[in-house]
Design a protein around this nucleic acid. Structure first.
Length: 431
DNA sequence: TCTGGGGTCCTAGGACCC
DNA sequence: TCTGGGGTCCTAGGACCC
């Protein structure tokens, strides 16, 4: 038996905790660069605002419908997520934090998981003011589906039986009621079925979740892949996936951004790449890994007419490393190899691949080179100082100063306060 | 004018090995 | 005429997730 607990409209809900005047109003949170809507309140969804729609296409709703748009404040969301996750951990012994706003919990063998889920939901609300929904089912895929139904039943009364709202336990339904729910749910709502696969399934006459569950697993594998077979089996109630409570190190670490303004000078790009490379190296060291491949890319806007440019370069390190200096050096040499003047570039990124644990890395035989081992004390001193005194306190000379506007700095014109991470911005009355 | 960021898994096909 | 068989590793590309 699995539970999936999920924050409703999570980023918007985090903002509403500290700005209660935003409740009952249409609100969206915008992505980096105030580019598109990545979280929408129910009222915003009711205005027909779709996920990831560009801001300029809905901007008129500010005037017309009182829409409020905010720049993404990930420091705040991460903090609120930690609070929510620590409460969810009390539900059962195995918790998998699946994303910033979602968590699976293994509730096998627990007495009355339904009652406990209701209590948990109430506690999260009482302690954090975050609204959540809980889905319960015999597999992760069914728990996901139950969670979707719990939200739909709350948002659109009449779409599903009212008792399924907020907390939905699919395992308590009679076979007939269960079948009705599956028939009422579009196949595209199943976890793992995206737009492409949904289209392919519909072409085969599979329109709702019941149709998909009827599919022969062997046929699903033959026509699609083991992936589809697993989904079908999970819909049958046969668990193929477990709660993964051990956090595996990332196999790939990226730092990529769109720019606030187009950039075309190499000097600016070098600063960008040094800054992104440093961030990626910090993430790499935080999980105690080293990398041996540094990919850098630059590109023009895919939406604009005019001369396009998109190139990437992979630089291999002689010896796996987590040293900011080596990673930045590799990224800049890659950048120089692909750079061409005369293009309005709007995005760049540094991606670290071929990642392995630092503990397994062997020092290079060349005694003159800086190996992962010899540079580790310097890097960890740098990380300690930056943790203690703030990001960018100690950095490479080529990296942009923190909080200094650059041509390429992202737009964040609607940023809310740092309510949980800055002592001088804690709301009055809460301090 | 204005269009996000960071990940994962699976498969097919080529190179290579004995 | 006829041109092995079985395996691994790696990579690019496609699809998905939030």
């Amino acid at each position: 038996m699995f539970a999936l607990i999920d924050g409703n409209n999570f980023f918007v809900s985090c903002e509403r905790v500290f700005q209660p005047q935003l409740r009952q109003r249409p609100v969206v949170v915008l992505s980096n660069n105030d580019g598109c809507a990545i979280s929408r309140s129910d009222e915003a969804k009711a205005l027909g605002i779709r996920m990831a729609v560009p801001w300029f296409q809905i901007k008129h709703l500010e005037q017309q419908a009182g829409l409020v748009a905010l720049s993404a404040n990930f420091a705040l969301y991460g903090e609120m997520s930690d609070r929510m996750m620590s409460l969810i951990a009390e539900l059962g012994p195995k918790q998998e934090i699946y994303s910033i706003d979602e968590s699976f919990v293994d509730v096998c063998g627990l007495n009355n998981p339904l009652e406990r889920s209701w209590a948990l939901r109430q506690k999260i609300w009482d302690w954090t003011s975050l609204p959540t929904c809980v889905g319960l089912g015999p597999t992760k895929t069914l728990a996901k589906l139950a969670n979707h139904i719990a939200k739909q039943a709350e948002r659109n009364p009449g779409s599903y039986p009212a008792e399924m709202a907020q907390v939905c336990d699919l395992s308590r339904l009679s076979p007939t009621a269960f079948k009705e729910v599956l028939i009422a749910t579009d196949v595209g709502e199943v976890w793992g079925i995206g737009r492409r696969l949904a289209d392919q399934l519909r072409e085969c006459g599979i329109h709702n979740v019941h149709d998909l569950a009827q599919l022969d697993p062997a046929l699903a594998r033959k026509r699609w892949s083991v992936f589809m077979e697993r989904i079908v089996r999970e819909l049958h109630g046969q668990p193929c996936l477990e709660v993964e409570d051990i956090i595996e190190p990332k196999k790939q670490i990226a730092c990529t951004r769109s720019f606030g303004q187009p950039v075309s000078q190499l000097a600016d790009l070098e600063e960008v790449v040094a800054t992104f490379g440093s961030r990626a190296a910090e993430k790499l060291r935080r999980q105690h890994s080293v990398t041996s491949q540094v990919l850098v890319f630059i590109r023009t806007s895919p939406f604009h007419k005019g001369s396009r440019f998109s190139q990437s370069a992979i630089t291999s390190l002689a010896c796996p490393s987590a040293d900011t200096r080596e990673i930045v050096r590799a990224a800049i040499s890659g950048l120089r190899s692909i750079y061409r003047p005369g293009f309005d570039l709007i995005k760049a990124g540094v991606i670290l691949a071929d990642i392995s644990p630092a503990s397994l890395s062997q020092p290079e035989l060349d005694f003159g080179a800086a190996s992962a081992t010899s540079s580790a004390p310097l890097m960890s001193a740098m990380d300690d100082l930056n943790r203690r005194f703030g990001r960018g306190t100690v950095r490479l000379g080529s990296v942009a100063l923190p909080d200094t506007p650059r041509l390429w700095s992202a737009r964040r014109e609607r940023l809310s306060g740092r309510y949980t991470t800055r002592i001088d911005e804690i709301p009055y009355g809460c301090a």
